[in-house]
Design a binder for these strands. Structure first.
Length: 1011
RNA sequence: GGGUGCUUAGCUCAGUCGGAAGAGCGUCGCCUUUACACGGCGAAGGUCGUGGGUUCGAACCCCUCAGCACCCACCA
């Protein structure tokens, strides 16, 4: 269980929410006043905030909503209440450092209470089905990853006006849940059997009611905007009805049947399981060579087996028909040791003469191959095991009641005593184990229910082949086809108590009656009311109900409006591990019962691994809990968490040491948005992801950067009206809009193609590299420029605000909390009246004018500034010292740009003055910006030798490139065959390089002259 | 035994249509420049796993080999 501490702020939260309401009202009024050009009267400031507000400038911003006391307090959430008590000493209302704790949970509650998660509007539907987590479950990294991607898609589409439904709920998870509750009972000294079926099932329901909600709460922590009002459970009344309906209809069509088959039997759980629930494990075992005496006393044959105990169920010995060693024995009999039975020697091509002795013992009731051989040769099927895999009454008296492994030892010993053990070889074999119990699975003859898979698979194959369903990445379709084309019938009955009881009844003679209810079953067969019937004891495989999830959750078999609206759903987001368990079966059932695919696209994500690339598992002790990444955790509790409840407690010291080594300082708190952004940025095409704390720390820093950039914008605008302006501003303003437009295009392309990594990268680069590193710096200069006019400054302010606001909307699907928090403060300044960012329109590239000319100008400016900065760093000049800059040459356009950009250059390059010169001086270092030569006279500081070396390096670089390009151009084939644009590009490059080289060489020559 | 991926900077990974090798983290300098030290400025760092082929041109397409990972499968 997740031992989350009780929420210490539960009481305080109520107050916070109350305050939130108060603040919303306050903001409405502010907004009205703002629009009317008034300042808010001081009386409107809530008492709890007023003290702080008075301390800082920019009152409007600080009064903005969403400013909970916690946000204003120091970084720890626990201090929220104390901060309230001493407002006078509180920090400035806008914390200098982003503190996710202060906002996330309250924000989420507000969203949920306001009903923002429900599908709204009449637009095109967009629907995602949450893969229902087990009710027993805790949120793990895989969930968190998956939920991040789904929530991003949901929020992205919701903002675009789609009628967006994220259908959520949980799975009853038959075996898993039953095991959990049984273990629980065991601790209380009780058992399922002692309790009886009805009371046990009641106990499971009770347990579900008490502790089943954990994962739902954790999903909320992730910011998942699913419609909780529509939450379903696979054992709800409605979903159970759907299960019965599907079972009955498939049975009526002959697609479900009951039969005695060899199935995979879990002798610990004492239930059948499906092929998929068996995991093959390589293990070191032995190969026993046993002598079976010939009945006629003329000798013996040697059989090789990995399972000597199944000897008791042998029905034959098989050899290959063309194996000359044994040809003369075919048709003879052997006396089965220890059993007093004679069995025939048969010929079957199944036998590989090259393996072992070339003789195989055939045990039709306990091996899938032998079963098939037995069918071909009409051999008896002798079951020798109980349902717990002990020898049953079909075995010789001496072995009855012995567990299979004890029986093995005894039998081998007895054979040895009889001189019938030839030898024992070490042998590597694959052992089938149950995925839940880890018990060695036994092929076991029992009556079970099966779904006839092939007829359902055919249309399911077709719909992927013809593109009605698309896998992303598409190579997963291959895996899907591979399995579907070799699909076996699906064993759906389980000998458990927790699950959907099979709607079949048996008469005294064993005849079967299937119906939606016992009454219907009777009516269909015309049975009298007093005809004795007993219901099948078994329940259905959990995946049977999961297969119906896309339509059962929407109300099927009733024809609900939701079903009509949202089926087929838009996309399924899931891991490759359940393509067969779940995806394939949903497709089959959807096509069968809805006549249409359940979803149009299947996005398959990779597995979350630890930093070393290992799978995360409790037993390895390398689990990371997403909640710990959000909230942080101290080393002690982390170690405790990883080392308690281990299957093998002896591993604890190793795990503790590894944990202490890797997380010596515990795990810092990163917040939900940073975690989500990390997941998104790692979601590259289908490949597994290694989760590395460095990455999440980087994105936490990114959150902080966004927070502080916003703080800057809001502080800059504090108290200033920011009316809409027609003036597009200077080239910096036009450039940042241009870049915004480009970035939005990239972000949308990322989301539209499920390339969350590219969307995240485009956002990151735009916000940090463009907006923060350049535009804000340019804006500062414009706003501080005494020569700038008020309308010019207004355009700058407006641009800061508009671009920030757009970036927040763009970032919202990945970082819902911080974007909402800031947006609520920013948007009103633009006249926006929305109460949440969640339902604001997603920004479009076309909303922001592109301006290639401005883009070219700022690109040139950047080159120039970077050139000067490089000179400064290379020459070890004091960063604070202003230096003179000389420029020489340049195109007409560049000369104009230089004039326009002078204030920017002066500030960004920390230049003292700019001087145009006709001849380069000798005592200057050089850089190029387009055609313009930059010269920084360094006077006494310059060491000509050093400068020559620097320039020579630069020239060498250019020359290398020039060689490559001219070589290419000298190639007639290249010029003839490559596209004209490519050739032209290379030509320009060659000239540019030649020019640059020439100018740098001239400079070197001059410097040499002084040496 | 079949099948699918992966191999690019010290680490984790992008690299779209075949047309100048990129990011984050880490490392190394310099800087408490009033949004941010969870920061700024600058730098170093790559035979794109190997060998071949196609092409005017290959990290990218084809083949070979090697290593790693995963899935499926009934050799006792």
């Amino acid at each position: 269980m997740q031992d989350e501490p009780p929420d210490p702020s539960a009481l305080d939260l109520t107050a916070t929410l109350g305050e939130l309401e108060q603040i919303i009202e306050l903001r409405r009024r502010e907004l009205a006043e703002l629009q009317a050009g008034q300042r808010p009267p001081p009386g409107l400031v809530p008492p709890r905030l007023s003290a702080r507000v008075s301390e800082v400038s920019g009152a409007q911003f600080h009064q903005a909503p969403g400013l909970t006391p916690a946000a204003a307090a120091a970084s720890s959430p626990q201090s929220a209440s104390t901060a309230n008590a001493e407002p006078a000493n509180a920090e400035p209302a806008i914390a200098k450092t982003y503190d996710p704790h202060a906002i996330e949970q309250a924000r989420y509650r507000h969203w949920e209470q306001a009903g923002y998660f429900a599908a709204q509007g009449r637009d095109t539907p967009y629907c995602i089905m949450l893969p229902p987590p087990n009710v027993t479950g805790n949120l793990h990294m895989g969930h968190a990853f998956q939920d991040t991607l789904m929530d991003a898609l949901i929020r992205y589409h919701r903002m675009q006006g789609f009628r967006t439904l994220w259908q959520c709920g949980t799975d009853h998870a038959g075996i898993a849940t039953q095991m959990v509750v049984e273990r629980q009972l065991g601790l209380q000294g009780q058992s399922r059997q002692a309790l009886g079926r009805d009371r046990f099932v009641d106990a499971v329901w009770e347990w579900k009611a008490e502790s089943g909600g954990t994962i739902s709460q954790q999903l909320r922590r992730m910011g998942a905007s699913m419609d909780w009002t529509r939450e379903r459970f696979t054992m709800d009344e409605g979903l159970s009805k759907a299960v019965t309906e599907v079972f009955v209809r498939l049975h009526e069509e002959g697609l479900i049947y009951r039969g005695k088959r060899l199935v995979n039997w879990d002798p610990v759980l004492r239930t059948a399981i499906s092929d998929l629930e068996v995991v093959a494990q390589e293990e070191q075992g032995q190969l026993w060579h046993l002598r079976y005496p010939l009945s006629d006393g003329t000798g013996h044959v040697v059989v090789a087996t990995t399972r000597p105990e199944t000897l008791l169920g042998d029905a034959a010995v098989a050899v290959h028909p063309e194996d000359e060693r044994y040809a003369h024995l075919i048709g003879k009999a052997v006396a089965l040791p220890l059993c007093d039975r004679a069995i025939p020697i048969i010929a079957d091509t199944y036998v590989d003469p090259a393996f072992g002795s070339g003789c195989v013992k055939i045990t039709p009731a306990h091996d899938f191959n032998d079963y098939a051989v037995g069918e071909r040769h009409g051999l008896p099927q002798l079951n020798i095991f109980t349902d717990q895999a002990a020898i049953n009454d079909n075995g010789p008296l001496a072995y009855r009641g012995l567990d299979r492994f004890a029986a093995r030892q005894r039998i081998v010993a007895d054979l040895q005593a009889l001189g019938l053990l030839e030898r024992i070889d070490d042998h590597q074999l694959t052992v089938p184990r149950g995925d839940r119990s880890q018990a060695v699975v036994e092929p076991y003859l029992t009556d079970q229910w099966f779904v006839r898979a092939a007829p359902l698979a055919a249309p399911a194959i077709a719909c992927v082949a013809d593109g009605r369903i698309r896998f992303v990445p598409e190579n997963w379709a291959k895996t899907y086809f591979e399995w579907m084309r070799n699909i076996e019938d699906w064993c759906i009955s389980r000998q458990l108590w927790w699950g959907h009881r099979i709607p079949a009844w048996y008469g005294p003679d064993g005849s079967i009656y299937v119906g939606r209810t016992e009454g219907e079953a009777r009516a269909k067969a015309g049975l009298a009311a007093d005809f004795p019937l007993r219901q099948d004891e078994d329940v259905l495989d959990t995946w049977f109900s999961s297969a119906l999830w896309p339509f059962s959750t929407l109300g099927w078999p009733q024809k609900t409006p939701e079903l009509a609206t949202f089926y087929p759903t838009s996309v399924l987001v899931t891991g490759f591990d359940i393509i067969f368990f779940w995806v394939a079966r949903m497709i089959m059932m959807g096509l069968k019962f809805m006549g249409d695919v359940p979803f149009h696209e299947v996005y398959i994500h990779g597995l979350v691994r630890d930093a070393e690339g290992n799978k995360m598992s409790k037993s390895k002790g390398n689990i990371l809990d997403p909640i710990d990444l959000i909230d942080g955790i101290e080393l002690g509790p982390l170690v405790a968490k990883r080392t308690t409840g281990l299957m093998r407690p002896e591993e604890a010291p190793k795990i503790e040491a590894a944990t202490r080594r890797q997380f010596g300082a515990g795990i810092p708190s990163y917040g939900t948005d940073a975690l989500r952004f990390t997941f998104a940025s790692m979601a590259t095409q289908g490949r597994d992801v290694r989760f590395d704390l460095g990455r999440i720390a980087g994105y936490r820093n990114f959150c902080n950067k966004l927070w502080n950039a916003s703080r800057f914008v809001l502080m800059t605008l504090a108290g200033q009206a920011v009316p809409r302006v027609t003036d597009r501003g200077g080239m910096a303003e036009r450039w940042i809009r241009h870049r915004l437009s480009e970035a939005l295009l990239a972000v949308r392309e990322g989301f539209d193609s499920y390339r969350f990594d590219l969307a995240a990268q485009a956002l990151y680069e735009f916000i940090w590299d463009e907006f923060c590193d350049w535009y804000i710096e340019l804006a500062k200069i414009s706003l501080n420029d005494p020569t700038a006019t008020e309308p010019q400054k207004r355009a700058v302010r407006r641009t800061l605000l508009e671009v920030l606001e757009a970036a927040l909307r763009a970032a919202h699907p990945l970082m819902p909390f911080i974007s909402e928090e800031i947006w609520l403060k920013v948007a009103p300044l633009l006249g926006a009246t929305g109460l949440t960012l969640m339902t604001e329109p997603y920004p479009r590239p076309a909303d922001y004018a592109t301006d290639p000319l401005a883009a070219a100008e700022i690109t040139w400016l950047k080159t120039l500034v970077l050139g000067v900065r490089r000179i400064r760093a290379d020459s070890n000049l004091e960063p604070s010292k202003r230096i003179p800059l000389q420029v020489k040459g340049g195109t007409e356009q560049e000369r104009r740009w230089l004039l326009e950009c002078t204030p920017f250059i002066v500030q960004l390059a920390r230049v003292e003055r700019i001087e145009r010169v006709e001849h380069a001086t000798t005592d200057a270092t050089t850089a190029l910006a387009g055609e313009t030569t930059l010269l920084v006279p360094l006077l006494d500081l310059l060491d000509p030798a050093v400068e020559v070396e620097r320039l020579t390096k630069e020239i060498a670089r250019l020359e290398q490139d020039w060689d490559r390009v001219t070589g290419k151009l000298a190639n007639a084939e290249f010029v003839a065959r490559a596209p004209a644009a490519v050739v032209e590009k290379e030509r320009k490059r060659a000239t540019d390089n030649a020019n640059a080289i020439e100018r740098l060489r001239a400079q070197v020559a001059k410097l040499r002259g002084t040496l």
